[in-house]
Design a protein around this nucleic acid. Sequence first.
DNA 1: TTAATAACTTATCACTTGATAAGTTAACTC
DNA 2: GAGTTAACTTATCAAGTGATAAGTTATTAA
Lengths: 202, 202
Amino acid sequence: MARKKEVSAEQTQRTIIATAERLFMSHGYRAISTRRIAEECGITQPALYHHFPNKQAIYLEVVRTIMVQTERAMTDVLQDYANSRERIQRIAYFMIMNHQGDMTQMFHDLQYEIDEEHRQTIQDWWMRSYFNPVMQTLTEGIAKGDVMSLPSAPPMELSFFVLEMMKSFLPPSKQDYEARREFAEKKSTMLVDILFDGIRKK
Amino acid sequence: MARKKEVSAEQTQRTIIATAERLFMSHGYRAISTRRIAEECGITQPALYHHFPNKQAIYLEVVRTIMVQTERAMTDVLQDYANSRERIQRIAYFMIMNHQGDMTQMFHDLQYEIDEEHRQTIQDWWMRSYFNPVMQTLTEGIAKGDVMSLPSAPPMELSFFVLEMMKSFLPPSKQDYEARREFAEKKSTMLVDILFDGIRKK
DNA sequence: TTAATAACTTATCACTTGATAAGTTAACTC
DNA sequence: GAGTTAACTTATCAAGTGATAAGTTATTAA
């Protein structure tokens, strides 16, 4: 073993992932060079290759970190709230609070810049952490009589749609906590108001 | 003057724009090289620079073409339909039928890859061709009593949201006409069903 | 104290990128 | 038919890319 003082390898890796997340998620995979990541971490570019085998591995670790964090949060929401509307709102709130940039960028990168083999793995993670909680909320809502089963929108397609609605509310970049909190509160309310009641005058 | 036979310069330029649209809109600005565009047009890379000053100019012309086409279609919709719900559905139908990939990619490129000066121009185009028709439809709907004015979703924010809903339905790539038509019909119905009536059981 | 090794750095690779310079050819004007 | 020019091509550039090789230094186990 070696070098425990100064900054540990673990600390450096955390810095790399945090920096890479910020850069990749706002600018996209291709737009961010390994030199840029290294520079903003305060290390040289080849040092990245001591911690990760290649650029793609850094990206995958970023995505994995996000997914793990999300799955934990989703589990909490489903445990803490029983009402469908409240669950959807809390999920939206979490995503707006914790996800920067557009996640659409991430999905695009996953589809076009990442190898087939890893793509499948990540899609499985995504199903577990994002899709299933929403799907479960909606199907349970239908079963309980909270939620209407629209002929034009079967549960699965509805779930995808709800996630798309959430993605569309993500702020372009990270602001300070208080501004973000207020924004997330407002937008998550707007989302469930429209989603559950619609805009037609009754 | 010179060279009228074979393929005209105008024809070549149209080919370049059509090819660039297909490539840029599905893969993104950065992911598409000028060599790739040229190759798929059947010309050499420097030939592009005979028709356009640089890569960005090609991209801007692609975007302009899309916007012009959209503005025309939107005008038709507002002329042909008076009912708010029908208008929104026809707008959604047009977008799903005519826009490939995710437009979000386009917005990302405009924000991160295009010069400030052009960004403003394009934003103005976008307001005219996309935003205004939706905004007009919703405000008129509120005035007529078709549409409810939600406290959590003022008309402007609602309009942005509706456009985001539409964007989320865009198919990943172009299929054959009939499959696309069916898809667009289904998704535009789903959109207005959710948007106007919501999913809450009454 | 010494040998091993983690955690780096400097130097450099092959390759792709957008862009330019200079030459070529076909069509049109006169 | 000579000259001009539009519409290209071939050859090449400098800058930036991901990745590797080889050297350096500090820490730790023995």
